[in-house]
């Protein structure tokens, strides 16, 4: 069986090797043309150490990785934007520590100075965790405010007196020395009244319809703090 098989193979081998087949006419011209044009890129591609499939694979992988990184960056950026906006809205809506301050700051515009300072001091006092510190701070603030009030009352009078004293005769009203004490007592009393009436003022604040401020997140990618909407209208 094996011998028959070998004979068969040998016969075919002899037949194939003994015979030569002349190539068609013009074959050399084709080869010469290819050599001249330098289009023989086949040996280069065959001898190149990296096959084309691998190169394509690398390129495709690089594109995929870059696309995924870009997507991740964009998603991260968008989530950051949403996070900041959420913090802003929490400041506005939640009646927590910082909320009264913002509300008070708004009311400063609409109320007189004395009430607002008293209210601020009150709010600070309420935000302090220790009651004693709060009271101390309140008292120091009140005293500071009283001195401030005193100067506010006296300084314009002096200025007017200095300015007008040269050109025009100015009547200085009779100032009692004890009057300063009385003024101070009055101011302290008024501040005490104000501090007593803080609850009332707060009720006023709460009842006062302050302009509602909302922050709406922007949908597009560029970073911003959002738009301020004042009573439903954009500013």
């Amino acid at each position: 069986m094996d011998q028959k098989m070998k004979n068969f193979d040998r016969n075919i081998e002899q037949m194939m090797n003994e015979n030569e087949v002349a190539p068609p006419f013009g074959m050399w011209n084709r080869i010469a043309t290819e050599l001249e044009t330098g289009a023989a890129a086949v040996p280069v591609s065959v001898n190149s150490p990296i096959p084309q499939r691998t190169v394509f694979g690398f390129v495709a992988g690089a594109l995929f990785i870059s696309a995924s990184l870009l997507t991740a960056y964009l998603v991260n950026d968008y989530s950051k934007e949403e996070k900041t906006i959420a913090i802003n809205t929490s400041v506005v809506n939640q009646p927590s520590v910082s909320a009264p301050v913002t509300q008070e700051m708004q009311t400063i515009i609409f109320r007189d100075e004395v009430k607002s300072t008293a209210r601020i001091s009150k709010s600070i006092a309420t935000t302090l965790p220790v009651a004693e510190k709060a009271t101390e701070a309140a008292s120091t603030n009140v005293s500071a405010n009283t001195s401030k009030l005193h100067t506010e009352v006296s300084v314009p009078t002096q200025a007017i007196a200095e300015n007008n004293g040269v050109t025009e005769p100015y009547y200085f009203p009779a100032i009692d020395i004890d009057n300063a004490k009385k003024v101070e007592e009055k101011t302290t009393a008024s501040i005490a009244k104000v501090s007593k009436a803080t609850d009332v003022n707060e009720r006023e604040v709460s009842s006062y319809e302050a302009p509602k401020i909302k922050f709406r997140p922007k949908k597009h990618r560029s970073f911003s703090y959002g738009r301020i909407i004042h009573n439903g209208k954009r500013k």
Partner: peptide, 28 residues
């Protein structure tokens, strides 16, 4: 060329493919 065209004819499934192989082989 004659010997190599015989080789190409054995490996190719048709005459034209053998010509292409011959050209490619000689360029190499």
């Amino acid at each position: 060329s004659s010997k190599m065209f015989g080789v190409c004819l054995r490996y190719a499934n048709e005459y034209n493919s053998a010509q292409d192989l011959l050209q490619e082989g000689f360029v190499k």
